[in-house]
Design a protein around this nucleic acid. Structure first.
Lengths: 343, 343
DNA sequence: GTGAAAGCGCTAACAC
DNA sequence: GTGTTAGCGCTTTCAC
């Protein structure tokens, strides 16, 4: 005796019949949109279990105008730090499931048309777009869409959009304050290559401005240096730095690709970390942990961002409006690369 | 004049009216399931463009019994090498889009019930399940499902299932042959910790058997060693190895976590790579490339596996049956860690 | 080569 | 607190 026929789908009508109620009652038991007597509820729930009923997603989407699916658009660009990206995606899926939503995975290479496709076909109720650039070509589309969206990253014009990102200005300032608190008076910022400052997400610029404001506030000597991720560029940057500021004892590094060549180069010129030079990095936790020595760092809170993105989306879907940008406060984790200045 | 109303969805009926044809004709233009006169086709296509029509995914799924969505179940377990996982996922999405399919991202923590949920609700037409273990609790569910599925990894019993994986036995043999061809006569295999051999995917066992068969075939001296990813364990393993085989000049490493401590330890006991010891690794390409020196390696062909998985699924959906397991031939990339034996 | 119309399985008025 | 029923927008016979 097997109750499931070949390929047959159990329908709400069958459940209703089995429980001796109307189809709508089954629907309402499932959605909780009207009160049901405990007795009826139990009967229906039993039938659902016995028949192993699962509502047809397409039918439900058609009738209710809700697919219960969220789109997640991930970047393909090789520059990204993959573990952080994955951590973020996992966090999105996990949070979405808490709200009974599923997640459709899209790649950025579909461009604006990809967003339109899944939105216009009502495949998804909402979208999360990662790695949004300053002048992202998808912005017009996102503003037009009937579905709410959350952008990870802050474009140049955020009007009409909901954005989330780490507060890089605060992160830059936090690093400066940490070094200043440890007694360092002359510090430097090693950032991403110049190219990054022009296009992309603008986070590099925000870090610099936070860095510079904090430097001014604390009355430190400082300079900032874009840096390519090559040994040669790192050497040159260090030369520049120590020539301009011979007293330099602190470094803020906002460029994960540069970390290991930088540590190597420092070692080779006889500068010990943290005895001679203290370092604070803005980078993924795993990178900071694996460095030798492990770096005190401000981490990218991928998990929080993912969770928050979904929560904002659910708010929008429930009618709670929230067009605005959210900057997450940075948190500094002390490890072994920053110590009291020995001047 | 704006043709899109507030939240209104353009329907096939509107397109039909605009083009002066029946709704079914529009449908057939879209699906290509019956021949249309060039003239009609053009009219319909124009209307579709003008009205910016996108078929409603839910309605389509309901009427056609096809959602055009594939589920991708990714593991959460921290042991996984994340970049490979991501590479695989990207490959799945990219290939799926070529077949006009979308990808629903699920995490393994939903277990068998998660598979049932998306399958029974007809949210997806097919499933790809990554990181399948020898006695995976999801196997019964996968056998019951009305949707086809492809498993990444080879369980103990593959009956009624479609599985794909790298041919680890062949990979083990390939490494042995490479070392033997270079003149090495005494070699060792450093594998994953013993725990991995018992549970999980069985790939470790397959590597060993391939290794041992090749060793026998080539008449080499050899031994195999599970190894925890700690410096201490690595030292002990090397001690054992060189005590038992003082003439040892070649190592096959199938454990990416062990690579960097192993290279360090070798360096510290004065063994140069590749002059004194040649190494061939079975690991992701990025790990092999980043090692010092870069390792000759058999890589995990994540991209091929992802593409193939989707292609197999599409075959099933099109009615081309294929219950079977596919082992991908390993490819060895020469880098700098393996050289001619200097005996 | 094209049209008419019957569902697909569910939700949400509306009625009681 | 529960039942009836009209769609939701599409695909696919069936008919011409």
């Amino acid at each position: 005796m097997r109750s499931e026929g070949r390929g047959r789908v159990v329908t709400i009508a069958e459940v209703a019949q089995h429980a001796g109620v109307a189809p709508s009652t089954v629907s309402y038991v499932l959605s909780g949109k009207r009160s049901i007597s405990p007795k009826t509820r139990r009967r229906v729930e039993d039938s659902i279990r016995v028949l192993n009923y699962h509502p047809h997603a397409g039918a439900r989407a058609l009738a209710s105008q809700r697919s219960n699916v969220i789109a997640l658009v991930v970047p393909l660009r090789p520059g990204m730090h993959v573990p952080v990206l994955m951590q973020f995606a996992i966090s999105v899926v996990t949070t979405a499931r808490r709200f009974d939503q599923d997640v459709l995975l899209l790649t950025a290479d579909e461009g604006p048309a990809g967003l339109r496709r899944v939105a216009a076909s009502a495949l998804v109720d909402a979208l999360i777009v990662m790695d949004v650039e300053l002048h992202d070509p998808r912005l017009p589309e996102l503003r037009t869409l009937h579905q709410p969206s959350v952008l990870i990253g802050i474009p140049a014009d955020t009007a009409g959009l909901t954005c989330i990102d780490l507060d890089f200005a605060a992160a830059g300032a936090l690093c400066v304050d940490h070094l200043a608190d440890l007694g360092h008076r002359s510090i430097g910022l090693v950032g991403p290559p110049t190219a990054v400052y022009e296009r992309e997400t603008g986070f590099a610029t925000r870090t610099i401005s936070g860095f510079e404001q904090a430097v001014a506030r604390r009355g430190l000597a400082a300079s900032t240096h874009p840096c390519e991720p090559t040994y040669e560029a790192v050497r040159r940057t260090l030369d520049d730095l120590f020539r301009a500021q011979p007293e330099l004892t602190g470094l803020v590094v906002h460029n994960e690709a540069v970390i290991s060549p930088l540590l190597d180069s420092l070692h080779q010129v006889g500068k010990r970390v943290p005895q001679d030079v203290s370092i604070v990095a803005i980078c993924p936790a795993d990178v900071a942990e694996r460095a030798v020595p492990p770096l005190s760092s401000v981490l990218i809170p991928a998990e929080d961002v993912g969770r928050l993105a979904v929560e904002l989306l659910m708010d929008s879907l429930e009618g709670r409006q929230n067009r605005q940008t959210t900057l997450l406060a940075p948190r500094l984790t002390r490890r072994q690369s920053a110590a009291t200045a020995t001047a």
